Amino acid sequence: MSIEANKALVERYYHELVSEQRIDLVEELIAEDAADETLVGPGGSGTREDFRDHLRGLWANVQDVKATVEDLVAEGDRVIAFWRIEGVHVGPVFGVPATGRSFTGHSISTLTIRDGKVVRYNVLPDRLGIIRQLAAVPV
């Protein structure tokens, strides 16, 4: 696949799968043997079900979640996504119990693509920035 096709796949991942909560797209966008490294650790092996679990957990704890890709950098089979998440905190996030507060967070994700599907996913969120908003911790 081309770099542009890989970028388009990542755009769909965040817009359609995460924001629109289209769990039906997991088979189309995620390889059967894909690893969600947020759950299995770097280099770990996984399955599509790990992605479903990650998404369901996000949707259960962040109401009205919206993921917006701000920039993409790609080379070969990898795409780096700089993205923003917005939503309402209705369940535990990074150890903070539900507050009902709206928040915005920024993350950088690495997605590896094979044959038009995500095979590895890792995310580095701004945990401290999000926790400060949720727990009302002064900067």
Rank of each mutant, 00 (worst) to 15 (best):
I3T: 15
E4Y: 03
A5G: 01
A5S: 15
K7G: 10
K7L: 06
K7I: 10
A8R: 03
L9V: 08
E11Q: 14
R12E: 13
Y13S: 06
Y13Q: 02
H15S: 13
E16Q: 14
S19D: 04
Q21A: 13
Q21Y: 04
Q21T: 03
R22H: 10
L25R: 09
E27L: 06
E28I: 01
E28L: 00
E28T: 14
E28V: 09
I30H: 05
A31D: 07
E32P: 01
E32Q: 12
E32K: 10
E32S: 07
A35N: 06
T38L: 03
T38V: 12
T38D: 13
L39V: 14
V40F: 05
V40K: 05
P42F: 08
P42Q: 10
G43V: 11
G43F: 11
G44Y: 05
G44I: 05
G44E: 05
G44H: 10
S45V: 14
S45N: 10
S45I: 11
G46A: 10
R48I: 06
E49R: 06
E49M: 03
E49H: 11
D50M: 07
D50E: 11
F51R: 07
R52K: 13
R52Y: 11
D53N: 11
D53G: 02
L55E: 05
R56N: 15
R56Y: 07
L58T: 12
W59T: 12
W59H: 15
A60N: 15
V62L: 10
Q63S: 14
D64F: 07
D64S: 14
V65H: 11
V65Q: 08
V65N: 13
K66F: 00
K66C: 11
K66D: 12
A67Q: 06
V69L: 09
E70G: 14
D71V: 08
V73D: 02
A74F: 12
E75W: 03
D77C: 02
D77W: 01
R78V: 11
R78E: 14
V79L: 04
I80S: 04
W83H: 15
R84W: 00
R84C: 09
R84Y: 00
R84H: 00
I85R: 07
E86Q: 12
G87L: 01
H89K: 02
V90F: 06
V93K: 01
F94L: 13
F94M: 12
G95W: 00
V96S: 04
V96W: 00
T99N: 07
T99S: 14
G100V: 03
G100I: 02
R101K: 15
S102T: 15
F103P: 07
F103I: 02
G105Y: 08
G105K: 05
G105N: 09
H106G: 04
S107I: 04
I108L: 14
S109A: 15
S109H: 09
S109W: 01
R114G: 03
R114H: 14
D115T: 06
K117C: 05
V118F: 01
V119S: 07
Y121H: 15
N122M: 14
V123H: 05
L124K: 07
P125M: 04
D126K: 08
D126S: 01
R127I: 11
R127L: 00
L128Q: 10
G129Y: 06
G129I: 08
I130E: 00
I130R: 03
I130W: 04
I130D: 00
I131Q: 09
Q133P: 06
Q133M: 04
L134N: 06
A135G: 07
A136R: 14
V137G: 04
P138S: 10
